[in-house]
Design a protein around this nucleic acid. Structure first.
Lengths: 102, 102
DNA sequence: CTATTTTTGACAAATTATGTCAAAATATTA
DNA sequence: TAATATTTTGACATAATTTGTCAAAAATAG
């Protein structure tokens, strides 16, 4: 049940890299990367993509972790969170079934 | 598979009210309500709550429609949308099982 | 045709997200 | 322990997005 931040921190530590190095690759301040790892800030999509290529892990895996974090975050303390997720799932299925071209 | 906007529009038309009236109750410009009904703008949580009480429908039903719209919107064109929703569901379940007080 | 209602698009104001900096806290190692 | 390197924090600036208004155009009703 890892958040994206946990995953990134693990990857960075496995590779024994300081924040500085990875942050430089992402072209952001190391303070920001620290916050991202601890879940105090949300990275951008581009940053997630860059991280996947940097650590050579599947882009989709990181994107799923990132998106699901965002969804959870959006639902915060809503009591109907689960129901909303289920309805959203139906809607997404419906849309993907009915979408033309786009 | 109705969006919140569709639901609100139906409710308003069933009650044969002009945008003007409902918008006045919400204390917003009617143009904004028009956009909300057509899904071109997202209402705030407070507005959704007000709408539920105005039309005397279950607050939770509108909130679920509103939240699921937001989630779908956030997932937009992501190919991993469904997976992300499923992971988010697991995370929400996990959190609600482990949350203390809050 | 005239009135009313709805929709649209450009714009302003407010809010939230993203990033930096410098200092404080923590960990490492000489 | 002292010195150095790393990480974390919080205040702040900037950028981006959201939320709302206004006025005019389009659509609908009478």
């Amino acid at each position: 049940m890892d958040s994206l931040g946990d995953t990134v921190k693990k990857l960075r530590e496995e590779n024994e890299l300081p924040l500085r190095t990875v942050a430089a690759f992402l072209d952001i301040d190391q303070a920001l990367l620290s916050k991202i790892e601890r879940g105090h800030r949300k990275p951008t999509r581009e940053q997630v993509v860059k991280l996947a290529s940097y650590f050579k892990v599947k882009e989709n895996d990181l994107l799923i972790a990132w998106l699901s974090d965002k969804l959870v975050n959006e639902l915060e303390d809503e009591k109907v969170a689960l129901k909303a997720l289920q309805v959203a799932e139906e809607k997404v299925k419906y849309i993907s079934k009915h979408k033309k071209s786009r």
